[in-house]
Design a protein around this nucleic acid. Sequence first.
DNA 1: AGAGCTATTGAGTGATCGCTCAAGAGCCAT
DNA 2: ATGGCTCTTGAGCGATCACTCAATAGCTCT
Lengths: 189, 189
Amino acid sequence: MRLFWAKGYHATSLKDLEAALNMRPGSIYAAFSSKEALYLAALQRYFERSRDDLRARLEEAPSPVAALAGLLRATAGVVEDEAATAACMIVKTLLDTTAAEPEIADRSRGYLDAMRDEFAAAFERAQAQGEIAPDADAMRLARRFQSQLNALRIEAHRGTPRAELDALADDMARGFEDLRAATISAASA
Amino acid sequence: MRLFWAKGYHATSLKDLEAALNMRPGSIYAAFSSKEALYLAALQRYFERSRDDLRARLEEAPSPVAALAGLLRATAGVVEDEAATAACMIVKTLLDTTAAEPEIADRSRGYLDAMRDEFAAAFERAQAQGEIAPDADAMRLARRFQSQLNALRIEAHRGTPRAELDALADDMARGFEDLRAATISAASA
DNA sequence: AGAGCTATTGAGTGATCGCTCAAGAGCCAT
DNA sequence: ATGGCTCTTGAGCGATCACTCAATAGCTCT
């Protein structure tokens, strides 16, 4: 997963995979049936981990918006030793996939949609418990949140220094925390 | 350029380039000296067009912030027949480039930096002419703007429907137009 | 027309691609 | 120990990769 994540589908050869998995080609093809299937398995694992990490954050944080804002700020903090795995693997996959691999592209879109739905559900919970205004469009907020998160991680991949990354994450996080403030001020008005 | 943009560096073969350029391998290697050099030439052309388009918008628009907000909204409107060229070629390049092609990665970063500096200069002009608060950090605003623009274009690449894309662009554009409102309200306060 | 030059051609280079499969290793029950 | 089963091995498959170069075509001079 990490190898595919770092190098991408096309740039990763079976030689690379043999070394990373410590398996010979025959074993690889016995366990998985093709390079594409192996990639799809890696992508699925990546998605499940991302989703589970998000859910864990939502459970532990005091509120949905706090969890999401925290995720943005934490993402800036993950200055990986390998910057190649700073960007989201699903986004990398989507941008790298052409018409030659429609299955991979479709799955990528599906995973992104699933993550967006998780975000949307979180915003709906924030509305239900009065953290943000009830008349907002949760799906629209989710799309905005996901876009910002993807952009932040691309910025990290690019090599933007930690301080600037923190500032950017803070700008983004505030954008969502302000929804809370707006609700409060509207309620108190 | 369009072929590399759509398919990416690794997935584009010389066969593809021969067809797209209507040139035989010998001619391609006489004109450019390698696939990598050809890619770099395409990337440079892409950058120059992007930069020139931005400058034209900044000249024509009534103000810097109006130009930048307009760029975001216009980007949502570019629902290409080919969604493969919706995302920024430089971003795609950066995410697709590995340690095997350091020259391409370096150039990508350089172009992104150059675009960010253009954005920063625009925000500085907005400050100079009183459109936004003079104490803001223009470079920080530029980084935020560039991140949002990249994210919006990825969203377009992903296939998000036009209406949702417009809503997202509007959210983003407002984020910058609000800098103006804050200045005005502060001035009028 | 013909010499001199540049630009183009496309068959072919070795290397590497994703992938296969006959042969052998490892393991367990008898 | 031996037969039977699963799993692993790695040489090697055809295809394709980026790339080369001797031969040719096309052009501009006199």
